[in-house]
Write a protein that binds this DNA or RNA. Sequence first.
RNA 1: GCCCGGAUGGUGGAAUGGUAGACACGAGGGACUUAAAAUCCCUUGGCCUCGCGGCUGUGUGGGUUCGAGUCCCACUCCGGGUACCA
Length: 927
Amino acid sequence: MDYNFREIEPRWRKYWAEHKTYRATEDPSRPKYYVLDMFPYPSGAGLHVGHPLGYIASDIYARYMRHRGYNVLHPMGYDAYGLPAEQYAIQTGTHPALTTARNIERYREQLDKLGFSYDWDREVQTCDPAYYQWTQWTFIRLFHSWYDTSLDKARPLEELEAIFRVSGAQGARAFHTCVWDFTAADWNGLNENGRQELLMHFRLAYLADTWVNWCPALGTVLANDEVKDGFSERGGHPVERKRMKQWSLRITAYAQRLLDGLDRIDWSDSIKEMQRNWIGRSEGATVMFSIEGHEEKIEVFTTRPDTLFGATFMVLAPEHELVARITAPEQREEVERYASWARNRSERERMAEVKQVSGVFTGAYGINPLNGEALPVWIADYVLAGYGTGAIMAVPGHDSRDFSFARHFGLPIRQVVVAPGDQPTDPAGWEDSYDSKEGKMVNSGMLDGMDVKAAIRATIEYLEDRQLGTGRVNYRLRDAIFSRQRYWGEPFPVYYKDGMPYTLPEDQLPLELPPVDKYLPTESGDPPLARAKNWHTPEGYPLETNTMPGFAGSSGYYLRYMDPRNTQAYFSPEANAYWRNVDLYIGGDEHATGHLLYSRFWNKFLYDLGLVCEDEPFRKLINQGKIQGRSSFVYRISGTNTFVSRNLRNDHETQALHVDINMVHNDELDLEAFRQWRPEFSTAGFILEDGKYLCGYEVEKMSKSKHNVQSPDELVERYGADTLRLYEMFLGPLTDHKPWDTNGIEGVFRFMKKLWRLFHDEAGFSVADGDPTEAELKVLHKTIKKVSEDIERFSFNTVVSTLMICVNELGDLRCRKRTILEPLVVLLSPYAPHIAEELWQKLGHSSSVTGAVFPTYDEALLQEASFEYPVSFNGKLRFKLNLPVDMPVPAIEEAVRTAPQAGKWLEGLSIRKIIVVPGKIINVVVS
RNA sequence: GCCCGGAUGGUGGAAUGGUAGACACGAGGGACUUAAAAUCCCUUGGCCUCGCGGCUGUGUGGGUUCGAGUCCCACUCCGGGUACCA
């Protein structure tokens, strides 16, 4: 009786759907476990074999935890807002909601075929008003919150206003961007608009003029993580810097907590490192420099206050607000020319010309607060307006950028740090600056002789005592720009009154996305929502026309899964108290500095509000590796229609052409299929080797144009979902990137057939009762042990190998015993759930294998009476010696000494030592 | 430039200081079959050898250790992140 997956698999998928086998309900009597996949953006291309890799892994773990008695939450949904559907809408006029719904349907069909144990009753779609109502709601809460740096948490804005009424800006330690140190009287004297304007500097969601990444081709701004090398991550269009009024989230208030939280979560070091670098904490000091002949002061941030005596000039960013005020009349023309050149340069030009030194002297001089020295003030684009204070003190002796600037413009270089063991030298002869923090101070007044670290502390203390500066921590992290000039996103629950933004009352949510006649900006350059009819409140106030970015809907979706149909709240406190946070999160590492950072911020904010009970959303994170394509090539002899086989191609001048991988099996080209592929190949000639045409191959990204896309559907059709699931795991470690190669799937399919034959003979199902032999028990328990250990370290590829070995060995033993085969079915069920259900039922069970208890192994059954010791001489394996496992070490040594095979290796040598590791190895040291 | 990974047969990979190459794919040989499919058996890192067996071997060069693919140092190459971040 043959293994017929085509009959088995659909039947069990129907059973699971009908019986709601994987529905999760809160049950305080059982421990919870929350397994989550990063939900997909449903693209028009559908799934390729790379997508389900992580889904299969998480599904295996979810099923495993169910067998272990956990109440498992394993939901799935769709990150449904996104640019491709909108670009398609612009081209065709089709509403993105239609395209998205169609794509979701296709995704669902594909996902369903793979036998995942999702609780589909909890599905969410970010573009569904019932979902984005809570995205909008969270935005409103952010808008009405401020960050208290003394309590280190977000608080309601009313509380801040109450403080302002009584004690002004001094009354609160608030994270803000307000330059005015106003009093209570100032505050109380302000009108409504004045107060709103001031509060904008404190809100966690705020509207402000900021430098943004503007992408003209997409017609929208982008967040920093959506830009790669000066191009948009989606679409690869050029990005410019532009100053625009935009919504932002004050994620910078959470910089330190986002950094600290990393130490408490189980994520890969590489992702944590990426987040640490992105947050970019640096410790140093701000120092105030007065300016000769001006009232203003230049504030500088430096991580090396110890080198203050080595400063020989200062540099402002070209956009720095003081530039216009301090520039000397004779330098004005040149400075303005440089500033406007720098401003108009695209981000890409600037990045491409990083090594080119440029700058202009302003004619002004800053005063070194330590020694009163006058330092010429320059502007240069190597100083960035957005980092620190946008101004630096230049220490060319100990900073390589300042060094090359000084060399280029002939500015003085002074040594203030000497490397350990070295003597001071003349910087004129240096090839580079000495940037290391190892060394002793020289030419630095009261700092002389101190080592760098002590000098940093001493300088900060000195500056603080005299109110010339303060110690300060600076972060590279920028606030997240939260508005997009696009149609297909969440509308902001915001209207404008006297030019000031106000949020809609919560009972008016969701504010639904309105229909528009076109998905393009208006003639006046306003976003598409400006085309909507009646886009205003009932009172006639205009509504916001920007929409939210892609990460808005994905930042809190894991919370909504806990209570997805709640119409009164984001989620109930009870549901959150039970499911708490995600225990295992699997997804791609491309979200390291985007989604994974925004989600942590979102969660911490809701934690501050007391809405969620855990301050980190994802306890354990695993990044599955990418599956790369394996492209096949044919070699056409130049100028002909003749193709030469791989190993003969060097005899000719050839061009390599991608061929569809479906026409290639084990690198052999199906000539007939190739001739029919395209008309121009119908008359193609071939030069064969050994009667075959062998294709070349290369590992590349999976893409349509390379003809190397493998869809899971074809493989499910041919081998079944269980085989595909096993094979994707068998390919290699989950976290590794690896090329897709269909060749190996036959081996897994053979395994499935062998497994089937353990339970069946020609006539049909055939399993015997009766006591198992010692050998059979040993095979089973050895397998249980290895499978359990490997699954706990997410080593799914070795689990599949172990199951193969088990089936091979039971086959050799002709074992058909129920007591052996039944636990095997449970071991297998997380990986190949359909066949497991089928066999489980045939074994006489009336309920799903999902509820079966995961088997445990008995150590006693694994004990061997003897062990075949590998015996090495000076580390080289020479022979094996079978000895009882309980033989004491001295007896083993004696056995080795007297073993007949040993004589050959001892001839003319004496034994210095015998190392015995019981149960492992024997090593004889001779000389 | 800086930070983080990685390098093992023809291929994917296994081996958490203790028998390198498990498990598969591919390849070669054989059995069964009218034939094919399916299935089963044998061989398969390299070199020397009829064989027994030996030598060699985890990117390169050193080191630690009775013993290193695994730990340490230096380097090469590949992949990813980031980049005038003061």
